[in-house]
Design a protein around this nucleic acid. Structure first.
Length: 304
DNA sequence: ACACTGCCCTGCGAGC
DNA sequence: TGCTCGCAGGGCAGTG
């Protein structure tokens, strides 16, 4: 699942191939829904002939700045890939759209599950997208005391809050689980019951986990590939995500990891390191958090 | 304003 | 071996 580190890896590697390159043609495959736009004109015709000035990242979005005053965003969602290849090369797996550049290279977008989108926006729509996203995790202005009031009305779990892109942009299921483990916070902890000091520790953990993942060019758990078709190297550094089904032990205390569903997402944690007072569990999740079965059981903690 | 559910989509592993 | 079933989850719309 591409989250901030994976999207940043794609941005870094793709930038030298697209910067100051003109899009001389666009080929859309059978799944035409991959490209969309709120603008009245056909996005493919608006893209053809445009020159890419730069590619930025905001949260999990890649944002290509065009010389026409328009902007193209790419969201990889779960299984999307952007691949660099030569024009005329055979289609990549699950290819949906190809951008032919004046360099003789192509940028191809493929997505097994057709969740990812290429979107053409004008300046107002980009501003609207920007306004819906919270601060970047590495924004130096983002501190414990800044985050604290923003969580004041959040009565749900801290995990649910961290997955909300309006609070902080760029976190997904993998790095939320990793950061909470590192900060020793239970995913079910009520968001507005966490003090400033703990939030500062959580921010440190988020930055550490994301920084390490960027350094290792992202996590490949199932499908992520960089623009050269290579896997990321961060999976072996993960402490909890995806580990409950393998060795299932906590690197810090040696205890058994536990799996449960939090905020509708599969969640792995160490019940020993990430303790929680039952009174701090939001709503009717009380039962599921107390259902501390063996860590390896399938769907452990899920009710019913 | 926030929380929750269902939807989109398909490869894959589990179970029979 | 081959089938069916349900899980994986980011963002969004709809509902409460």
């Amino acid at each position: 699942m591409p989250e901030l580190p994976e999207v940043e890896t794609v941005r870094t590697l793709i930038a030298p191939h697209v910067r100051d390159r003109r899009i001389v043609g666009v080929t859309v495959g059978a799944f035409t829904g991959v490209v969309e736009s709120p603008l009245p004109a056909n996005p493919v015709s608006l893209l053809t002939g445009a020159t890419i000035l730069d590619v930025q990242r905001r949260g999990k979005y890649l944002i290509f700045q065009l010389d026409t005053g328009l902007w193209m965003t790419v969201h990889l969602r779960m299984t999307g890939r952007l691949i660099v290849c030569r024009t005329g090369d055979p289609a990549i797996r699950f290819e949906h759209i190809a951008f032919h550049l004046d360099s003789g290279e192509d940028i191809r977008f493929g997505d097994q599950r057709k969740f990812g989108r290429v979107t053409l926006l004008d300046e107002d729509h980009v501003a609207s997208l920007e306004s819906r996203l919270g601060p970047e995790p590495f924004d130096p202005d983002l501190t414990g005391p800044v985050l604290h009031p923003r969580l004041a009305r959040r009565t749900g779990s801290i995990k649910g809050a961290l997955l909300d892109q309006r609070l902080i942009a760029g976190l997904g299921n993998i790095y939320v689980d990793e950061a909470l483990w590192r900060a020793k916070i239970h995913p079910l902890q009520t968001a507005n019951r966490i003090d400033e000091e703990t939030l500062a520790r959580l921010l440190d953990a988020i930055r550490s986990v994301l920084g390490s993942a960027i350094e290792h060019q992202g996590t490949t758990f199932s499908s992520f590939e960089n623009p050269y078709g290579e896997a990321g190297g961060n999976a072996r550094f993960l402490k909890v995500y995806g580990r409950s089904k393998t060795d299932g032990t906590c690197d810090r205390c040696g205890g058994q990891l536990q799996r449960m569903v939090v905020a509708g997402r599969g969640t792995t944690l160490c019940p020993t390191c990430q303790r929680i007072d039952p009174s701090q569990i939001p709503g009717d999740d009380f039962d599921s958090a107390n259902d501390v079965g063996p860590g390896l059981q399938m769907q452990g903690g899920k009710r019913r």
